[in-house]
């Protein structure tokens, strides 16, 4: 199996900060796997992600994209090979949905017919019928629909890998679940490499082949969900898993209480 992305002793500190945002990270991400990057806010997960498409540059260390050091690649060319989805979506408000999705194919100079076909195909893929949605503008769509377009736009030029930075973070729980399902089905279909940042442990475990747990810029554990649950690598991971379990128990307890309330009401 090929390595899609490799970090070699990558370190990043922001100007005026007294600590490393990402501190000596070395790891390999295999082609075709979904890796979720999990951690609390400020743990460095977004920084790690943004170094892959060179929105941030590491202070030291090296990142390889299919074996090639990205520092030697033109950042604009590199980004066209990488899909990028962010929480705030960032659709272009003055372009309709079709034009938004066609942005990168147009830049790459695809023939018009091929672009049209691709846009229709992608809208179908994210469950937004082209006939209805292609000519609409972003402000006419709900948050969940906008992020579907965000996904389609990122997939447009058939990128080798996808970077997703808390893409479903601002979306209601029910819609989020269906978007997660769609993401998984898109992944099964194309077997692209996904790097998915989230602070939601349930989302991280649900989607991932492997979960990368970060704290204070350091990798705490990088393993399959089942392994993390059965063999937490350190105190931090144990606490994280326990807190999620407790939360679930509280939900169940809450459910019981609600039953009692409704029983006493009847």
């Amino acid at each position: 199996m090929r390595t899609a992305v490799e970090f070699r002793s990558v370190r990043k500190r922001f100007p005026k900060a007294s600590y490393d945002a990402v501190s000596d990270v070395s790891l390999k991400i295999n082609e075709g796997e979904i890796v979720t990057i999990l951690g609390t806010s400020g743990c460095g997960k977004t920084t790690l992600l943004k170094m892959v498409n060179r929105l941030y540059e590491p202070d030291s260390g090296e990142i390889l994209f299919f074996g090639q050091p990205i520092r030697q690649m033109n950042p604009v060319e590199l980004r066209r090979k990488i899909g990028y989805v962010i929480q705030q979506v960032g659709l272009f408000p003055h372009m309709n949905i079709g034009e938004n999705i066609a942005t990168v194919p147009k830049i790459l100079g695809w023939p018009k017919q091929k672009i049209e076909k691709r846009v229709d195909e992608l809208l179908e893929l994210v469950q937004l019928p082209a006939a209805e949605f292609k000519k609409r503008y972003p402000h006419q769509l709900s948050g969940g629909q906008q992020q579907r377009v965000g996904l389609a736009r990122a997939l447009a030029a058939d990128p080798a890998i996808m970077l997703l930075d808390e893409p479903f973070g601002a979306i209601d729980a029910i819609t989020r679940r269906s978007l997660q399902d769609e993401l998984l089905s898109i992944h099964r279909k194309f077997r692209k490499t996904f790097l998915f940042v989230t602070h939601d442990i349930h989302e991280a475990f649900r989607l991932a082949d492997r979960v990368l747990i970060l704290d204070a810029g350091k990798v705490q554990q990088f393993a399959a969900p089942a392994e993390i649950c059965s063999k937490p690598a350190c105190g931090f991971v144990e606490k994280l898993v326990d807190s999620a379990r407790e939360e679930q128990l509280e939900w169940k307890a809450g459910g019981a209480e609600n039953d009692q309330v409704s029983a006493s009401l009847s």
């Binding site: 498409n53 604009v76 990488i82 962010i86 960032g90 408000p93 942005t103």
Partner: peptide, 15 residues
């Protein structure tokens, strides 16, 4: 101009 729009434009490889 919404910074998220600019960030996504850079992220997708616009010059």
């Amino acid at each position: 101009v919404d910074p998220a729009v600019i960030e996504s434009a850079y992220g997708m490889g616009m010059s």
